[in-house]
Design a protein around this nucleic acid. Structure first.
Length: 321
DNA sequence: CGGATTTGACCCGCGC
DNA sequence: GCGCGGGTCAAATCCG
């Protein structure tokens, strides 16, 4: 897995994404020829487009998460990518070109996903979140005021910090903070190098839940929001979760998304959840059926699938009304 | 008033 | 050792 980092370095989000957009804008049935996200050799992803003609882009695609300055997200192992690739197919192997009434909003989003179940190996390529945060976390457990005293911070009990699994979503949406069913508390915002758009840091508000997520907008395509989840929820989705995405935006959506209720619902999705993601109609896009089939098989039997199920229960076990 | 957000400061790892 | 960039903290502020 050592070369995974290389792949990350070679990642070129812009080109591939623009390419995608061009296709999409010209022809809604964007078959992302030969591997949608053309990032790099190992990259595998899917390009999923819905047949929502006039609604600009009704497409979803899973891919790696690109970030102007944070390549650490990815851990582009083929397995992982395949896993996601097939994750989508697994859930959406329903039927393509099926337009859901009222689904315009959702269909506006394009989402790409990458998984990076990181492990020790993933650590070496920059511990953005590694050392200090772990230390701080430990300090927090003990006592928070230690910080002022600049206490300790010895690397005592953390021989190897194990990174939490990460999954990234690239979503074409105007909404910064996408609804995923969980409740998040923003705890930080930082400017991203080489990007005019800041990165926001969120933490799951559920007690003892360590899940975090980062949200940033692509510097190359401002219409794309990159959401990176870290760790797994160890609790069910909070109650107030909305399932009727297609029925229209909820008030809470406006709040969480910082959008004004007056904006165009059709063209500007108010909210978005992974549940909704898989509910969106799509037109299949992978050009290589053999490959897809193979990946599908691997994925459904792989640990990645299980991981995804845990991280995004709403996606894998969506409850139909 | 309680919870969420904002924002500057701080911490840490890494590269030079 | 220093500067940079990323991540987090926490006081201040906002908001319902």
């Amino acid at each position: 897995m050592s070369n995974e980092t290389k792949d990350l370095n070679n990642y070129h989000y812009t080109s591939s994404y623009n390419h995608y957009n061009n296709i999409n804008s010209q022809n809604m049935s964007l078959p992302y020829v030969s591997g949608p996200c053309t990032y790099n050799a190992n990259m595998i992803s899917s390009q999923i487009g819905s047949d929502l003609h006039s609604s600009s882009q009704g497409a979803f695609g899973f891919c790696f998460e690109p970030s102007p300055s944070s390549s650490e997200f990815f851990n582009p192992s083929i397995d992982q990518e395949n896993g996601f690739y097939n994750a989508y197919n697994y859930n959406t192997s329903l039927k393509s070109h099926e337009v859901v009434g009222g689904g315009g909003a959702i269909a506006e989003n394009e989402t790409r996903v990458s998984a990076s179940p990181s492990s020790d190996e993933a650590d070496h390529h920059h511990g953005e979140n590694s050392g200090k945060s772990l230390l701080k976390r430990e300090a927090d457990d003990g006592g928070d005021k230690q910080r002022s005293q600049k206490v300790v911070k010895t690397k005592k009990n953390q021989e190897k910090k194990i990174r939490e699994p990460r999954v990234s979503f690239m979503t074409k949406t105007e909404v910064d903070h996408l609804e995923d069913g969980y409740r998040w508390r923003k705890y930080g915002q930082k400017a991203v190098k080489n990007s005019p758009y800041p990165r926001s840091y969120y933490r799951c508000t559920t007690q003892k839940c360590k899940v975090k997520k980062r949200v940033e907008r692509s510097y190359q395509d401002p219409t794309v929001v990159i959401t990176t989840y870290e760790s797994q929820h160890d609790h069910p989705i909070p109650t107030t979760r909305r399932t009727a995405m297609f029925s229209g935006p909820a008030a809470s959506d406006y709040k969480s998304s910082s959008l004004s209720p007056g904006s165009n619902f059709i063209n500007t999705p108010r909210s978005f959840s992974h549940d909704d993601l898989f509910r969106v109609p799509y037109s299949s896009m992978n050009v290589n059926p053999n490959y897809q089939q193979q990946q599908n098989h691997e994925f459904q039997h792989g640990s990645d699938y299980e991981l995804l199920k845990e991280m995004f229960p709403s996606v894998f076990f969506k409850q139909e009304p």
